[in-house]
Amino acid sequence: DHIADFLNKPAKAVKKLMKNVGIESRNWTEEEYATSDLAVEAVNRALRMANIRPEEVKAIWCGTMTEDYPGVPIAPSVKERVGTPRMGVYFDISTACVGFLSSLYIAYNDIVSPYGQGGPQVVVGSDTLSKFLSPNKRETFMVFGDAAGAVVIDTISDKNSLSAKIAFQFGADGSHVEDLYIPAGGSRIPTSEETIRNNQHCIWMNGKMVKKYAQNDMRECIMRAAAKADVTFGDIMWLFPHQANLEIIDGLAKDIGFPRERVYKNIKHKGNTSSASIPLALRDAYHEGKLLPDELIISCSFGAGSEFGAAVLPTVGVPRRTTAERIRDLIPH
């Protein structure tokens, strides 16, 4: 009810919308925290989990749409605070909610290329969307959260040759630019007193249109990625969709015929965290004992632009959890 009061909207209408999108709560940072702060924490945790020292890292790819400062990449700042070598690849990838999958695609290709950096490399998705929301835009104000998630990738022993099944599929449709965007602050509509008065520096969304094309585009990417990998859904343990909207997630699973019990969801208490959505889901699934080594998963996402993509990925190298870790994760926090 406090959200309804804040939005100056009827509590019944707010609860109905929240139920439809599947969100009960989401996390926002304190005002003093920026996107790079979350990214640094995620990268450090991933390196510890992988038992990799910062000085070993060859590249950090940051998927984000909410830089600390407009036009300035966060990757150098992340590199500096994590303590990785000065000479390396430190790039931001700006494909909105698809930022993590886009960065993962680039990292995979770089590692296997004779012209690449080699491994290990880090891919992080980090966004603080709460700083770009307005209570006047309830369709976005109640949905988006702040988060970061990171993974370490490298070439390692693969006894089941699952890496041969890695496949990506991406696409874009520029006709939907104004269905999900921040209108002002860029070169099209520079910042002015008028844009500030008109609330044009927050996220605007045409929810009905986004729901329609997002589901269709992710479905096509999933089917194409699975075909590239030459796998069926019987070969895939989990589907990790972008956690944007429960109706979209459930509708997508139904459309492609993927078993609902193997569709991972954490949107209920995370909300839509943009580029952090998928790595955050992977992290939660791991600690729930659902993400295990030496399996195949498939993930998909869509976002502003519009951008969309999917990937068939092996979980080779995912650390096996000790008994102590499993017990610790059972303790309520």
Rank of each mutant, 00 (worst) to 15 (best):
D110V: 07
H269M: 07
V14F: 10
D250C: 05
A304N: 03
G125K: 04
L291P: 09
H287W: 15
L7K: 08
K211L: 15
S134G: 04
V318G: 03
I23E: 06
R197H: 14
C202H: 13
D68V: 08
K58V: 03
K16H: 10
D284L: 09
K165N: 15
P73G: 07
E55K: 12
F100N: 00
F141L: 09
P241E: 06
S306I: 07
F233V: 00
V122P: 13
D284I: 09
V57L: 09
V316G: 00
P85D: 05
M223E: 15
P183H: 07
S306N: 11
K79T: 00
N198F: 02
E41V: 10
T191V: 13
L239T: 04
E288A: 12
Y105K: 00
K137Q: 06
M205P: 07
I52N: 00
V123W: 01
V123R: 02
D37M: 09
Y181M: 12
R81H: 10
T29I: 13
F132V: 13
T195G: 00
T66P: 11
I23R: 08
K131W: 01
L292S: 12
G174M: 08
G119Y: 05
A4E: 13
D110A: 13
E55Y: 12
A96L: 10
L239E: 01
K159G: 04
A59T: 10
N109C: 04
P114I: 03
P73E: 08
L133Y: 01
H333D: 05
V21I: 15
A34D: 00
V72D: 00
G317P: 03
A167N: 02
L292Y: 05
P190N: 10
T323R: 15
L291H: 06
F302Q: 01
T323Q: 14
L133W: 04
V57W: 09
V89G: 03
K137C: 09
F100T: 05
W61E: 03
M18Y: 05
P293H: 13
K159C: 09
N8H: 12
F240L: 15
N136S: 14
P183Y: 07
L104R: 05
F258N: 05
V21A: 04
N160Q: 14
Y286G: 00
A75N: 11
T273D: 07
S113M: 01
T155D: 11
G71Q: 04
K208E: 15
C300S: 15
T155W: 11
A147N: 07
R283P: 01
S161Y: 04
Q215K: 14
I74L: 13
A304H: 05
L101I: 15
E325Y: 03
I298E: 03
